[in-house]
Computed example of a mutant assay.
Amino acid sequence: MTVVSVSMPEDLLNRIDEFADEHGYTGRSEVVREASRNLLGEFEDAKLEDRDLMAVVTVLFNYETTSVEERMMHLRHEHEHLVASNFHSHVGSHYCMELFVLEGDLTAISTFVGKIRATKDTLSVDYSVMPVDEFGPGTLEAEMGHGHGHDDE
């Protein structure tokens, strides 16, 4: 197996170690491998391919981190064909929340979420994806939980 060196904040490493201990993992490598497989598999769901989708993406970041807010604005403009709506709000005295409503296909949505996740200094990225091409009795309820992911760092 190949050994990879990864840089991360000390508090995240401590959380990974605690998670490994609490959940019976053999160590942090096993946690990181499983998390990586889950992340890579999130958007590989055949039920969502070739369908019109709607996604809601919520990003939380520190108010004083202006580089994150600038990056959110850049992504909104870069993906204006995908972003149906965007909302910015202050949360408490130190945080901002950016909410994006997206309409598009699986590839476009997964690319957008990936770029959000790759933005340095975001505190939390949460999203949900649902198909909008087959709204009918019972369809929405059956599909709502599908494709939901959460990423806290």
Rank of each mutant, 00 (worst) to 15 (best):
D17I: 10
C96R: 03
S7Y: 00
G104A: 01
H148C: 04
S110C: 03
E44P: 00
R76D: 04
R117C: 13
E141V: 14
E69D: 07
G92T: 06
M73V: 09
R71F: 03
M72W: 02
D151A: 13
E80Q: 11
C96Y: 05
S85V: 00
K47E: 15
R76H: 10
L99A: 14
V3M: 12
V3W: 08
V57R: 01
D105I: 00
R51L: 04
K47P: 00
L123E: 11
D151S: 14
G41L: 03
F100W: 05
E49Q: 15
R51M: 02
D133L: 07
Y95Q: 11
D121P: 00
D152H: 13
R76K: 11
E153W: 08
M73C: 00
V3D: 11
E22A: 15
D52Y: 07
E103I: 10
L39V: 12
L60A: 10
M54E: 13
E80F: 12
S128R: 12
D50V: 05
P131W: 04
K47C: 06
M72Y: 03
F19R: 07
P131L: 06
L102R: 01
F19D: 06
P9V: 07
R76F: 04
Y63N: 09
G149K: 03
A20N: 05
I116Q: 03
G149V: 02
A84W: 03
E22N: 14
H74F: 12
L140V: 15
F19Q: 05
Y25M: 06
E143T: 12
T65Q: 10
E10R: 13
R71P: 01
E141D: 14
A108V: 00
T119F: 05
F19M: 04
L60K: 03
H90N: 02
R28W: 07
I116H: 00
